[in-house]
C-alpha cells in the first residue's frame, strides 16, 4: 500500500541476513511488501511500510527476522497505560 503511509522511522523490525536461508516466507506473508529477495537472501526494502504485525517473524524457519509485534491501536495502548502491565500482551481492541 504505497498511497497511504504511516509514521516513518519507528519500526522495530530487524533481519539477520547471515542467518537468512532465502526461503521467501517473509515475502509471502508480509501484507506491505517490506521484503525483497536479492541473491537468495531476503532484504528489507521498505522498512517504513512495516506495521509490525509479526507475520514474518512467526514464519521465519531460522529465526532471522525479529520484530516487536503488536497491534497499532490507540485505544488498546490507552487501556494498557491505565491498567498497567497486568494486561495480557496479546489482547487487542478490535
Amino acid at each position: 500500500m504505497k498511497d497511504i503511509r504511516y509514521i516513518d522511522g519507528v519500526s522495530s523490525i530487524t533481519l539477520n541476513e547471515e542467518t537468512c536461508i532465502g526461503c521467501g516466507m517473509c515475502l509471502q506473508v508480509c501484507p506491505h511488501a517490506v521484503f525483497i529477495l536479492v541473491a537468495k537472501k531476503a532484504r528489507i526494502d521498505d522498512r517504513d511500510g512495516c506495521m509490525e504485525c509479526g507475520a514474518c517473524a512467526m514464519n521465519c524457519p531460522v529465526d532471522a527476522v525479529r520484530v516487536n509485534p503488536g497491534v497499532g491501536c490507540a485505544s488498546l495502548i490507552i487501556k494498557r497505560w491505565l491498567k498497567g502491565k497486568n494486561m495480557p500482551a496479546d489482547s487487542c481492541c478490535c
Binding site: R5, G72, C73
Partner: peptide, 24 residues
C-alpha cells in the same frame, strides 16, 4: 481520529505510541 488507528491495516504499534506521546 487517533483511535481510528486500531481499525486500519497499516499503523504500527511503535508509530501509534510515538504519536500518542505528544497527542494525548
Amino acid at each position: 481520529a487517533m483511535n481510528f488507528t486500531g481499525s486500519t491495516p497499516f499503523t504500527s504499534p511503535s508509530g501509534v505510541e510515538r504519536e500518542m506521546k505528544w497527542a494525548i
